[in-house]
């Protein structure tokens, strides 16, 4: 496959970025999208051009590090797919592909396609955990948990923290990300104890870090590579509401 790539290049946080156009030839349709970028970088190095910086690590769709906006969609075409799981056979010979970083105020661009998602860590540090010290636990089977409840908690816990939800939201809201953690823990008896405090603290931190409001457009749900649904946002809203009603 021969392709035209329009890639966002930006030297650092402060510089103004712009699109550069590159031609690339003989890409195998069996290559992954990131392998195509590897080949582009090999080509750029040969031509004496600085290679394109992009984030990636596990390349099997679970670490959440890859984060590209491809032809106007977070993680590109394809349903429930991360960028690293996207393969070139989804494109046609001769296509032009536009590649951008996540765009959100709370995720500043560091260089080229690399953004700073440290805000997600800060939200989780505000309360996205159960406060139990090592060694305090009782026997794992001491509290039976309903299967459907545990399964639903797992649905929410599948979040990989990639930030596609924020990147795709017109308000750059982090509600789906926050909701997945709040919902995962609130569904389990172990997490119920701190549920109110957790929801309050995480939402406050999210607001403080400059993420936008949720207007329930549902774009996040469409682009989430792990299929996390808006139901969890509803649960977060319930937890948050009850948090504000209780003293």
């Amino acid at each position: 496959m021969d392709l035209t790539l329009k890639v966002w290049r930006q030297a650092d946080r402060k510089s103004k970025g712009n699109f550069e156009t590159y031609q690339i030839k003989d890409i195998s349709p069996d290559s992954s999208f990131l392998e195509m970028l590897d080949e582009l970088n090999e080509q750029l190095i040969r031509e004496g051009i600085e290679p394109v910086a992009f984030d990636h690590d596990c390349r099997e769709g679970i670490c959440g590090m890859c984060s590209l906006f491809i032809n106007g969609r977070a993680h590109g075409p394809g349903h429930e797919t991360t960028t690293c799981q996207l393969h070139m056979r989804k494109f046609k010979d001769g296509d032009t592909i536009v590649i951008e970083p996540w765009r959100a105020g709370a995720f500043p661009v560091i260089k080229d396609l690399v953004v700073d998602r440290g805000a997600f860590d800060k939200i989780l540090q505000a309360g996205g955990f159960i406060s139990v010290n090592t060694g305090n636990a009782q026997d794992a089977n001491a509290i039976p948990i309903k299967k459907f409840q545990s399964d639903e908690a797992m649905d929410a816990a599948a979040c990989i923290g990639c930030g596609a939800c924020v990147a795709t939201c017109k308000n750059s809201s982090a509600m789906l990300f926050v909701a997945s953690k709040v919902s995962h823990l609130a569904l389990l008896p172990q997490g119920k104890v701190e549920a109110v405090r957790r929801a309050k603290a995480m939402v406050a931190k999210m607001d403080e870090l400059g993420f936008g409001s949720c207007t329930n457009t549902g774009a996040c749900e469409v682009e989430c590579p792990k299929g996390i649904t808006l139901t969890h946002i509803a649960r977060l809203n319930r937890e948050f509401l009850s948090a504000n009603l209780k003293p």
């Binding site: 305090n136 636990a137 009782q138 794992a140 039976p144 309903k146 399964d151 823990l185 172990q190 997490g191």
Partner: peptide
């Protein structure tokens, strides 16, 4: 034990 206390959603059967 520790992981369950932290909220790790291990698979369960219908009895919980």
């Amino acid at each position: 034990d520790q992981c369950v206390a932290q909220g790790v959603p291990f698979a369960r059967d219908y009895g919980g």
